[in-house]
């Protein structure tokens, strides 16, 4: 069956990690995997720039890591389970890191979750939101 990588582009505020994205983000995600080792977490946090320079990542990917711009990491082929190794290295939780990709601060985000989470109403499709 012909793969349809375009179908996901209609999802608002969502980046679907495809086999194509996996190629694009390969080095970024490999860097993230290296942070599963405590020793590498320490080396990374001690000197982020030179640790990043050990990986064949694009300048955009490195910049996104340095500024903890998770959305930009997603745009450049990162996947959140890989990226979680970056915020885990700093002892941050998923909620703390994930909320930075939204237009809320962490307290607002947590309040939204406690109130039942983000409603799917209005978030089903870009067409629905006139973003298409």
């Amino acid at each position: 069956m012909k793969p349809d990588f375009e179908q996901f582009k209609d999802l608002p505020g969502t980046t679907i990690f495809t086999i194509e994205k996996g190629r694009e983000g390969f080095q970024l995600n490999e860097f993230c995997m290296s942070l599963r080792k405590e020793e590498n977490r320490r080396r990374f946090l001690a000197d982020e720039r030179s640790y990043l320079d050990e990986w064949e990542m694009s300048a955009d990917q490195k910049q996104a890591v340095l500024t903890r711009d998770f959305q930009k990491m997603l745009d450049n082929g990162g996947n959140v389970y890989f990226l979680s190794k970056i915020f885990a290295a700093e002892g941050l939780s998923y909620v703390q890191a994930v909320s930075t990709m939204t237009d809320m601060n962490v307290e607002q985000y947590q309040a939204m979750m406690l109130a039942g989470g983000r409603s799917v109403q209005g978030w089903r499709s870009k067409k629905e939101r006139d973003e298409a």
Binding site: T14, T102, R118
Partner: peptide
């Protein structure tokens, strides 16, 4: 079950679904 942990739409929950 329902969850999204990335992007501007993060935090999506759809309990009826």
């Amino acid at each position: 079950m329902s969850h999204q942990i990335q992007g501007a739409r993060a935090g999506l929950i759809n309990l009826p679904w």
